[in-house]
């Protein structure tokens, strides 16, 4: 009498809601922790340390320090969450949708500073270097002066 054993379950399912979903007319709300692809929050916070590139097991992030450029290939990414955890500035976040359909599997998302911002950054770094060089030269001159003072005494 096998046909009656599942009869209870079958009859109940006549009156219950169907366990299937009419996708694409009804879409499911993703869970909070669902892993899809990553995105950068703000390029101005990024220090271009390259930790995300080193931790990635799928080689999907390319960081160029000299050009101030961060590039991400969503189709190589396996959504493992290592880069989000290892960023020292917490500048990356995990989104809940997978990358949308495309015909070019090598397409990438690029964030880089505008040319004016790059010039500003290069100028600030040159200033800092000049200041540091001046401080070092002053310290060296002071040391030499103290050494010359010691010699005539002895």
């Amino acid at each position: 009498m096998g046909v009656f054993k599942l009869g209870g379950m079958t009859l109940k399912s006549l009156f219950k809601k169907a366990p299937t979903r009419r996708y694409p007319y009804e879409k499911r709300e993703p869970f909070e922790r669902t892993r899809g692809q990553i995105d950068m929050i703000d390029i101005h916070d990024c220090i271009f340390c390259g930790l995300c590139q080193r931790k990635c097991p799928a080689d999907s992030i390319v960081v160029d320090r000299n050009e101030s450029r961060w590039e991400y290939f969503p189709y190589k990414c396996v959504a493992c969450d290592s880069c989000v955890r290892s960023c020292p500035k917490h500048d990356l976040k995990m989104m809940q949708e997978r990358p949308s359909i495309t015909t070019n599997a090598k397409e990438s998302r690029v964030y880089e500073l505008t040319p004016e911002e790059k010039e500003e950054k290069a100028r600030r770094e040159a200033e800092k270097k000049a200041q540091a060089a001046a401080k070092a030269a002053a310290a060296k001159a002071a040391k030499e002066a103290r050494a010359k003072e010691d010699v005539p005494e002895s």
């Binding site: 366990p19 869970f31 922790r33 669902t34 892993r35 396996v78 959504a79 969450d81 995990m94």
Partner: peptide, 25 residues
């Protein structure tokens, strides 16, 4: 179909806790 419908409940647990249905990381 019934067995895999029950399995969907377990996969929903996985997705809620770890973020992936089959590969958890």
């Amino acid at each position: 179909m019934h067995a895999w419908r029950l399995r969907e409940q377990v996969l929903d647990i996985f997705e809620e806790c770890t973020g992936g249905r089959v590969i958890f990381s």
